[in-house]
Design a protein around this nucleic acid. Structure first.
Lengths: 195, 195
DNA sequence: GAAAACATGTAACCGGTTACATGATTCT
DNA sequence: AGAATCATGTAACCGGTTACATGTTTTC
C-alpha cells in the first residue's frame, strides 16, 4: 500500500503526468520503492477516484493529450497522516539468507556463485546510491531542486539532511551485505582447500 | 516461490506434519522466511500433487489422523537444483527508507516515534537471532541436531558454519538498522534544539 | 523517414495477508 | 471439566509481476 504514498510524495512537489512519475520510479523514489508503469497508471486512477489527486487534461501536440496530476487537499492530508502514523513492519522474507542457511546443499561452485552474485547485486545498488548521494550534495537531482524551490528557507537544510540520511542508510545496508558475502567466501575457502 | 524450498529444506531432514512445519516457521526457518499456516497447508498439497513430497496418513488417537510428509527423490532433486541455481533479486521495496526520505513531512514527535519504532523492531529481531546463534553453538536447536544426526561427520562442521554465517548476517543487518536509526535521532535533535 | 521518447493503459496470474472455520487429543 | 496443544484447512482480497497492446510527438 506504500505505492500510493510514494506517488503522493512526488506529487506534493508539483503536478506531474503518469509518465513523469514513472520516470521518477526509474530513478529517485525507485531507489526505495520500485513500481512498473502497469501498476502506476491504474493506481493513479484509483487515487483520483478516492479524491487524493486531480487530473488536468493537457493537450499535447495536435491530437495528443496527457493527464497531469496534482495532489488535492485530501491527498496532502492523507500523505501527512501516513507520515505521522506508526510504520508496520512486514514479516521477514529473505531469499538470500534462506539460501545461506542451507548452503551446504549447494556445490562449492554454486555456493561461490551465489555469494559472488550477492556481492555483484549489492555493489550495483551501492554504486547507484553513492551516485544519488552525490546528486544530493551537488544539488543536481532535479526533483530535490524542485522540492527545495517550494520549501521555506529554514526547512531546506532539514529536507536535504533526511535525503542524505536515507541514502547513507541504504549505502550502509549494501556495504553490510557485501561484507557478509565476503565473509561467506572466506568460510567456503576454509572447506574447499582444507589443510 | 521460496516457500516451497523452505518447506523442502525442512523435509530433507526427515518426515514432518503440516503442523510440525508450521511450528518451525514460527521459529527456525521463520527467521528468514515467514509463512502462515493458511499458506503452508495448501502449498503442501500442491507440492504433493507435483510429486515433490509424499504423505503418509498416520492415525492419531482414536479418530484423529495426520499427514506426515517426506521429500521424494524428485523433491530432493528440485531442492538441490534450486540451491545450485542463481538467485534472482527482487526490486527494492523498503517502507522504512521510503518514509525516511520524506521525513521532513512528519512532526518531530512522529519522526522520533518512527525511528524509535525502527530501533525497537530491529532490537527484537536482533534478540531472537542472538538467541538462535546461541542455540546453534550450544546445539540446543532441535532441527539442527536432527540435521546433524543424518549428516556425514565430515560435513557437520560445514553445516554448522553456514547456519552461523546466516545468523551472523542477520545480526549485522539488525545492528546496522539500529545504528542508522540512532543516527537519525541525532539528526532530529540537531533540528529540534537548534542553537 | 526512422528512431527515440512521450503517453497510457489492459489482462492473466501468482504469492501473500487476513479472517474465518472446525474438530480431536492431551495435559492439568 | 477446561485449557492448551495438535491438526487442517477455506475464502476473499490485495498488491505486485509479466506480458501484451497501442498510438503520438519530437528529434535526428
Amino acid at each position: 500500500m506504500s505505492l500510493r504514498y510514494a506517488l503522493l510524495a512526488l506529487l506534493e512537489v508539483g503536478p506531474l503526468t503518469g509518465y513523469d512519475l514513472q520516470k521518477q520510479f526509474a530513478v529517485s523514489v525507485g531507489h526505495v520503492w520500485h513500481a512498473p508503469d502497469s501498476q502506476i497508471y491504474p493506481e493513479l486512477r484509483k487515487m483520483e477516484a478516492d479524491g487524493l489527486i486531480e487530473a488536468e487534461v493537457i493537450p499535447w501536440g495536435n491530437q495528443g493529450r496527457k493527464r497531469q496530476y496534482h495532489a488535492t487537499e485530501a491527498g496532502v492530508r492523507t500523505f501527512v497522516d501516513w507520515m505521522n502514523a506508526p510504520l508496520s513492519y512486514s514479516r521477514v522474507r529473505d531469499p538470500a539468507h534462506l539460501r545461506a542457511a542451507y548452503l551446504e546443499w549447494a556445490t562449492p561452485d554454486a555456493a561461490r556463485g551465489f555469494l559472488r552474485g550477492h556481492i555483484r547485486h549489492h555493489r550495483e545498488q551501492l554504486d547507484q546510491w553513492v551516485a544519488e548521494l552525490h546528486a544530493i550534495d551537488s544539488l543536481t537531482n532535479p526533483m530535490l531542486v524542485r522540492r527545495l524551490a517550494v520549501t521555506a528557507e529554514k526547512d531546506r537544510r532539514k529536507t536535504v539532511a533526511f535525503k542524505r540520511f536515507t541514502y547513507e542508510g541504504l549505502i550502509a545496508q549494501a556495504e553490510n551485505e557485501i561484507a557478509w558475502a565476503n565473509r561467506g567466501l572466506e568460510i567456503l575457502g576454509e572447506f574447499d582447500s582444507p589443510e
